[in-house]
Design a protein around this nucleic acid. Structure first.
Length: 333
DNA sequence: TATATTTGACCGGA
DNA sequence: TCCGGTCAAATATA
């Protein structure tokens, strides 16, 4: 299979390289790697939209290419080598996730027990030591409501939902699963956006508070986000671009899509909405250099790694090489 | 005592 | 029928 897929990989690499290039152009338009505090000049917005459109096109191609290369299943990650994996659930699951909900019966509380038509995206988070797993918290109040052994997976999957689900009707949820081949790598899949007060408060805070200078230069982090859903792609990518590379944007910090997730994932732990039990997050890691008092123990840093998910065959995969200061700077959010 | 976690059971889609 | 996602009672913890 290697021979037949090598061309595809080349094409895929080319497409992804193009995406990267466009991202860099976007960064340049919006102030580059620094902290952009001024609003983009008139006309820049249009250019950015065009660039985003271009990115989407390239990403679409990339996905097509990737899928054509992976007809036998998902692309093999090094960590997966030798690990019996779940069958190529592939694109079916991703696409069928939506649209089936109309037939979903509500339970006694009026809520569907099955998946909802919510935006879905995923990240992978790598911790640097086993002890760090407790710091996977992303800064929001999640309540664990289940854990399942997944067929073919070495580790169980944990299910979390927003603590304020019942009190505020916030339907955000996430799934966390340790990667088979790499105990330090976690797959995190988010469903839906926070609509609770903590999300609103964070949005407000991001608007009210001016960006702060980055406390330090963190190690390079790579984040890959796989956003799912036809509309979710656009909704996810566009807002995510704002807080990602440019920071002027407080206006862009709605809690939608990937931006919301990453925003939420990486907001500092100073949120008044956080429970004490969940005050450690990977984002605290990035506060270490800033002298955070609530630093997690033994957490030198965390790496967001690239994501390839078999169950996300129809996903948009989007890779950005972030400004190293991105996660250092609370002002980004 | 309130809140969070664990865990077996249930439900629905594939 | 299998499997993933969710519920909810039981249990643990602060």
């Amino acid at each position: 299979m290697e021979g037949s897929s090598s061309d595809g990989r080349c094409a895929l690499a080319a497409e992804l390289a193009q995406v990267l290039q466009v991202v860099r152009q976007l960064e340049a338009h919006l102030g580059g790697g620094g902290v952009a505090v001024a609003a983009p000049a008139a006309g820049a917005d249009e250019r950015c939209r065009a660039l985003v459109s271009s990115m989407r096109s390239s990403i679409d191609k990339s996905i097509s290419i990737a899928r054509s290369c992976c007809v036998e299943g998902r692309p093999m990650l090094p960590a997966d080598a030798g690990t019996p994996e779940s069958p190529p659930s592939a694109d079916g699951s991703a696409g069928s996730d939506h649209g089936s909900d109309s037939r979903c019966r509500a339970n006694a509380t009026g809520q569907c027990k099955k998946r909802k038509t919510l935006p879905k995206w995923s990240t992978q988070v790598r911790v640097r030591s086993v002890q760090d797993v407790g710091s996977l918290d992303d800064g929001l109040s999640w309540r664990k409501y289940g854990q399942k052994d997944i067929l073919g997976a070495k580790y169980p999957r944990s299910y979390f939902r927003c603590t304020h689900r019942h009190t505020q009707g916030c339907h955000a949820s996430k799934q966390v699963q340790r990667a088979d081949g790499d105990p330090l790598l976690f797959d995190i899949v988010y469903h839906g956006n926070h609509t609770c007060a903590q999300a609103a408060a964070r949005s407000a805070a991001s608007v009210a508070e001016p960006p702060q200078p980055p406390p330090q230069t963190a190690q390079e982090q790579i984040i890959t986000v796989a956003a799912e859903g036809v509309g979710g792609v656009t909704q996810a990518l566009e807002p995510m671009l704002r807080p990602f590379s440019f920071t002027s944007t407080a206006a862009g910090t709605d809690e939608g899509g990937v931006a919301g997730a990453l925003h939420q994932s990486c907001v500092s732990t100073a949120s008044p909405f956080m429970s004490p039990a969940t005050t450690t997050s990977e984002c605290q890691v990035y506060e270490l250099g800033g002298g955070s008092e609530s630093r997690p123990r033994n957490v030198p840093d965390i790496e967001f790694a690239s994501k390839t998910n078999s169950s996300m065959g129809a996903d948009m995969e989007f890779m950005l090489q972030l400004d190293p200061d991105f996660f250092d700077n609370p002002g980004y959010f």
